[in-house]
Simulated assay, not measured.
Amino acid sequence: MNRPSPAGKVLLFGTCLADAVFPDAGMASIRLLENCGFQVAYPLEQGCCGQPAYNSGFPDEARAVALAQVKAFAGSDAPVVVPSGSCAGMLRHHYPALFEGRPELFEVLAFSARVREFCEFLAEAAPTLPDSGPPVRAVWHSSCHALRETGSTPAAKALLRALPGVELVELAREWECCGFGGTFSVKRPEISAAMVRDKVEDVLAARADVLLTADCGCLLNITSAAQRMGRPVRGMHVAEFLWERVSGTASTQQPATRAGEANHGR
């Protein structure tokens, strides 16, 4: 691959789930950005965005976690790129509200203004990516935060539709939550389980080769539920999928969703 000329520096906010469960998604995010000519830095002091504490009604604890992230990414005016609509929404929109009326507000506002969701940033930096992968039928799941906070869903779909070998299929009920919601799935497991069953049915009805999303929480929830239902779904974070297409390492394996179609209608 030809490496483009340097495009500047970006800082990556890796997210907890990418770090602990989907490290390939984080590495693919870095490789894609580097392939676009960016110098990528990963501040080692970073941690959780604070959303679990914030959503559970512990604002003081959430502020402590949030301020640690602001400090970890200080000393630069480079964009903070986040491969998660959920975490990006927290960093960009909820941090300022969390520090309203507090002395740290202006520092927090300066940080939040630099935050960019991965797909929206990449769509501006490289709206047309090279595609070396085989033909594939993909279905897109948007997280609630990507739809309603960062507004990054159109950018993600534009990146995929620009790939010659990718047929992008729409979910019939895209606007419905998959039921994860972080601590919601723990506090309301019965409701969460019913919601994710509906989402799995919607994904299977699309008859796609692969499920794509930009949020590791949704990816974990949907693919795990499908596995438990005996109707496995091949799912990938969009960064990992795009990097495979760009680098020419895209898999030609039998897709789990179509392989499991014999079970469809149970």
Score class of each variant (00 low, 15 high):
106 F>A: 15
106 F>G: 15
107 E>I: 02
107 E>R: 14
109 L>W: 07
109 L>G: 11
110 A>E: 14
111 F>N: 00
111 F>V: 04
111 F>R: 02
111 F>E: 11
111 F>P: 06
112 S>E: 01
112 S>R: 02
113 A>T: 06
113 A>Q: 11
114 R>W: 11
114 R>A: 14
114 R>H: 12
116 R>Y: 07
116 R>N: 12
116 R>H: 12
117 E>Q: 06
117 E>D: 08
118 F>W: 14
119 C>G: 09
122 L>Y: 08
122 L>N: 14
123 A>H: 11
124 E>C: 11
126 A>L: 15
128 T>H: 10
129 L>P: 04
130 P>S: 12
131 D>S: 07
131 D>V: 06
132 S>P: 13
132 S>D: 13
132 S>W: 13
132 S>M: 15
132 S>N: 15
132 S>G: 12
133 G>H: 10
134 P>I: 10
134 P>A: 12
134 P>L: 09
134 P>E: 12
135 P>D: 14
135 P>C: 11
136 V>A: 08
137 R>T: 08
137 R>C: 03
137 R>A: 05
138 A>V: 06
138 A>N: 04
140 W>A: 02
141 H>M: 02
142 S>E: 05
142 S>R: 04
143 S>D: 09
143 S>C: 07
144 C>D: 12
144 C>V: 13
144 C>E: 03
145 H>F: 09
145 H>P: 05
146 A>L: 01
148 R>A: 12
149 E>D: 06
150 T>I: 04
150 T>P: 05
150 T>Q: 13
150 T>R: 14
150 T>E: 06
151 G>Q: 04
155 A>D: 13
156 A>C: 15
157 K>G: 15
158 A>H: 13
158 A>T: 12
158 A>L: 10
159 L>G: 08
160 L>A: 04
161 R>S: 14
163 L>C: 13
163 L>A: 14
164 P>E: 08
165 G>A: 09
165 G>P: 09
166 V>C: 12
166 V>A: 10
166 V>T: 09
167 E>Q: 08
167 E>F: 03
167 E>D: 08
168 L>P: 07
170 E>C: 11
171 L>A: 04
172 A>V: 03
172 A>E: 06
172 A>L: 03
172 A>K: 07
173 R>E: 15
174 E>R: 00
174 E>Q: 05
174 E>K: 02
174 E>M: 03
174 E>G: 05
174 E>D: 05
177 C>R: 03
177 C>Q: 02
177 C>E: 02
177 C>L: 06
178 C>W: 01
181 G>M: 00
181 G>V: 00
182 G>Q: 04
182 G>V: 04
186 V>E: 09
187 K>C: 05
187 K>E: 11
187 K>G: 05
188 R>P: 10
189 P>D: 01
189 P>L: 02
190 E>N: 09
191 I>R: 13
194 A>R: 15
195 M>D: 02
196 V>G: 00
196 V>M: 01
196 V>F: 00
197 R>A: 07
197 R>D: 05
197 R>V: 03
198 D>T: 01
201 E>V: 12
201 E>G: 14
202 D>M: 15
203 V>G: 03
203 V>A: 02
203 V>W: 00
205 A>Q: 12
205 A>K: 06
206 A>M: 09
206 A>Q: 03
206 A>F: 03
207 R>I: 02
208 A>N: 00
208 A>K: 01
208 A>P: 03
208 A>C: 07
209 D>K: 03
209 D>R: 09
213 T>G: 01
213 T>I: 07
